[in-house]
């Protein structure tokens, strides 16, 4: 066994790699933001909605958690096409990732909502807050603060899983790597670089979440509690 590593062949492609990194970040950021909104609304619906809505959300969550991401991506991609909707691969990729991460977010946030003690609701109620005010100030905010570490892990996983969207040729890091290796025939080297870039991306995403957490959770900042 004497494999001759040759990374020099990849050198001309570094702007393409960077482009891929940027696209992956963009894709994951969009999926994170929309997935968080979808998941949080679903969690509230599942915790406190009318029975029919609880059932709908439960079916959605269980379907997503029990099917592979790749199948979900194909379903969304070809689903759009079958309905006659013309969407780009990237839009389909974001949509599929939102649907996927929304279900996982729902379960994480629901755990947070359920961890808020009933006495907190009573206190808010007795102070005259409306249901909506109570939900926002006394339930959702502290609930998210509690499950923030779990959410961070979930969104880092999402960023890594977004590589699967290369299967519908969405534009992101893995898709870019696939192209580079077929141009250069240096497959092993290409994916070593790609893997290293994902590690860097993970650190960046994690750091971004930590900083964001320090901004939105002043108690953690002041008391020095780990995020």
């Amino acid at each position: 066994m004497s494999y001759q590593f040759d990374f020099s062949a990849l050198l001309p492609y570094w702007p393409v790699f960077l482009q891929g990194v940027w696209l992956t970040l963009k894709l994951s950021a969009l999926a994170t933001v929309f997935g968080f909104v979808v998941g949080t609304l679903c969690a509230i619906a599942r915790a406190d909605g009318p029975p029919w809505l609880k059932t709908v959300v439960a079916i959605y969550v269980e379907t997503i958690r029990n099917t592979p991401l790749l199948v979900q991506i194909f379903l969304v991609y070809f689903g759009f096409a079958s309905l006659g909707l013309k969407v780009t691969a990237n839009t389909a990729a974001v949509a599929a990732l939102v649907v996927n991460v929304g279900a996982y977010t729902c379960e994480i946030v629901r755990a947070g909502l359920e961890s808020i003690h009933k006495s907190q609701l009573e206190a808010a109620e007795c102070l005259g807050l409306t249901r909506t005010q109570t939900y926002w100030h006394v339930i959702v905010r502290p609930a998210i603060e509690r499950v923030y570490p779990a959410l961070t892990s979930q969104y880092v996983l999402l960023m890594l899983a977004s590589s699967i969207t290369s299967q519908i040729s969405a534009e992101e890091l893995t898709a870019v790597a696939n192209r580079i290796q077929s141009d250069t025939f240096r497959s092993f080297e290409t994916y070593i670089v790609t893997g290293a870039l994902y590690i860097v991306l993970s650190f960046v995403v994690r750091a971004a979440f930590t900083l964001f957490g320090l901004v939105i959770f002043p108690r953690r900042r002041k008391l020095g509690t780990a995020i």
């Binding site: 006495s119 907190q120 009573e122 206190a123 007795c126 905010r141 603060e145």
Partner: peptide, 14 residues
Amino acid sequence: VGIVFQSYNLFPHL
């Protein structure tokens, strides 16, 4: 009407 509880019930994140 104001009420105070045995377990205080302050909001911990505020």
